[in-house]
Amino acid sequence: MKHLTYLRYELLRTIRNRRFLIFSLTFPLILYLTVAGAHKNLSLDGISFPLYYLSGMAAWGSMTAVVSSGARIAQERSVGWTRQLRITPLRTSDYFIAKILSGYLMALFSIVVLALAGSIIGVRLSAVQWLTMLGLLLVGLIPFAILGILVGHLVSVDTLGPVIGGGTSLMALLGGAYGPLATGGVFLAVVKYLPSYWLVQAGKSALGGGNAWPAQAWIVLAVWSIVSARVAARVYRRDTARVQ
């Protein structure tokens, strides 16, 4: 990343975008405090409910943050800004990296705010466990960051809201972010092919033991990342070849 000033303004723009802030920060936080706050002493799958739900909300909030960041490319395309950037020395890869980094910044905010809320209502983890959770979340977000860039090239500004809102909610729902999933059967076998399932598991994996990420998690995330990146690259080339 050669252009630090550009990155700085890109981050500044992200922080100033209130709607973005509400969806990736406020919604998961409110849901977390109301649901987990009301069931502080409950325990699910052998995990305290505040931690269980923290995993889900952190996954949902951070996923929304990185997807929205890339998807904002749709808005910048629609007003001709990406064309303007293409006649500056900024490389396309740096443009995408800035989008991913600002998405990650918001994701980090979301995770930190939820973690603080979690510790207020009784989540107790060691520093190593917190860092493991954070690390796994950041890795699990990679396919979503790439999917965001893909969405930004496929979707028009009019449909951007529903696609991000609906897409991330569906991913979160199927991944088990909102509540416990079936503990076996075909459904569970299928959702284990979704990156969101493993993103939700990141928090629980932090406790180690039986809930840690298995090889399947790494493979699913890698495949989603690679496939999304290849599709996004193809869409990007098609997009720049056409007159706008």
Partner: peptide
């Protein structure tokens, strides 16, 4: 890439969430 070209394209509005000075500074930095 070498930065010897500057252009004003026909269509296009400005990037939001920045002041005029910030936007021009951002472009200058490239």
């Amino acid at each position: 890439q070498a930065g010897v070209v500057g252009g004003m394209l026909q269509t296009g509005s400005l990037l939001g969430y920045l002041s005029v000075r910030e936007l021009v500074t951002m472009v200058a930095s490239l």
